[in-house]
Design a protein around this nucleic acid. Sequence first.
DNA 1: AAAAACTAAACAAACGTTTGATTAATACTT
DNA 2: AAGTATTAATCAAACGTTTGTTTAGTTTTT
Lengths: 210, 210
Amino acid sequence: MMQGNLIEKSDKRQHLIQVAELLFAQHGYEAVSIRQLAKEAGVNLAMISYYFGSKEGLFAAILEHKIPRTREKLEEIMLQTTDPWERIARTIDVYVDSMFSNHSFSRVITREMSTRQRPDNVKLIVEHVSKNMRIIRGFIEEGQASGQFRDVDNNLTLASFFGTLTTMISNTGMMCMLTGEVDEAVIYTETYKDRVRAHLKSMLNHHLIP
Amino acid sequence: MMQGNLIEKSDKRQHLIQVAELLFAQHGYEAVSIRQLAKEAGVNLAMISYYFGSKEGLFAAILEHKIPRTREKLEEIMLQTTDPWERIARTIDVYVDSMFSNHSFSRVITREMSTRQRPDNVKLIVEHVSKNMRIIRGFIEEGQASGQFRDVDNNLTLASFFGTLTTMISNTGMMCMLTGEVDEAVIYTETYKDRVRAHLKSMLNHHLIP
DNA sequence: AAAAACTAAACAAACGTTTGATTAATACTT
DNA sequence: AAGTATTAATCAAACGTTTGTTTAGTTTTT
């Protein structure tokens, strides 16, 4: 008979996912070979095909393990608050937090989206993220329905929101050159997170509220 | 002795640059092999090393040929107008125009920035772009000095500006899923450009002007 | 005749994947 | 409970491609 324990076939599978997540985040999907991966994880390189079918399958496994978190938090906001602006403000908090504390992985996502190799991964990401974006758009629409928000271009407002964050995360080098910062790590500190939160709240507040 | 004509060694050199620009824009740097490139351009693949030293050298040649345009337009704005908001508004026009009409190439730039392979290219891009960003920041600072603009977070305002554009350009798939659009090409139409211009002007106006 | 432009072929390195064999774990039969 | 058959897990080695680059030689230009 089958083994019966489908969830945790072995420790090595989980360990591979963890190591791969780290390496992909550091160097990007293409730059990490399965040999490097296997060596770092201390397993035979054949195990990657064995467990995940392929290198791409491993990436998909990471995605499915990582992405769902934010959704729950958005639904929490939906339940706990009704005021449109408070919802937006809390959404900003959630995204700044999650994207900055997982900045390496966030960069992998951005990379995958922009390279457009591996369409399966792109599709997976688009599905998850756009679902979240729809929720946020709902927040805006409700604010407009109640007359509290301006009738702005909602989809482009979302583009500005996500664009600001991904630019901060992915173009760190550019931001450093601009701010005169030498150490890139400064961008990811708590004080910088505060700045981003404050900026987004201020900008979107003036944008949305008449 | 050397040939003496460094600018235009031959037609094939220029042709290679043109074809490479197109192919890199369509599929990304990594995805285009020099064999594919040479075949498409109708030249021997050894000519790439011969003219540009390497594949990376070819990319650098494209960059140096493409980037300088926007700078001139910004300096034009500096000369022709003095009103801070008019400067910002015209800057928006310039960037929406140039990034959308070169959207394929803009995506290559974004890709190069986010993959962070090939540090030489990244450095080249950062130098050019950040110089432009400094000019725009100058516009904001003057507006603040004259009391017309709010005391916003200037660097993050720039992040929002560029982030909005790169998100529209690079995450086209995401935007389509969000707007319910089926054909990605719609994003790059004139009517869409108008929407982006209008959105950026409205948002930054409310953001900057009290 | 010298230099530059061009070519076909080969090169070495890296890649993801597959194979075939071996060991460990589980299930089944007696 | 013991012994056997089956399946899963692991491994070293090799496979077949593809990659960017170089070489050594030929043609064309100056």
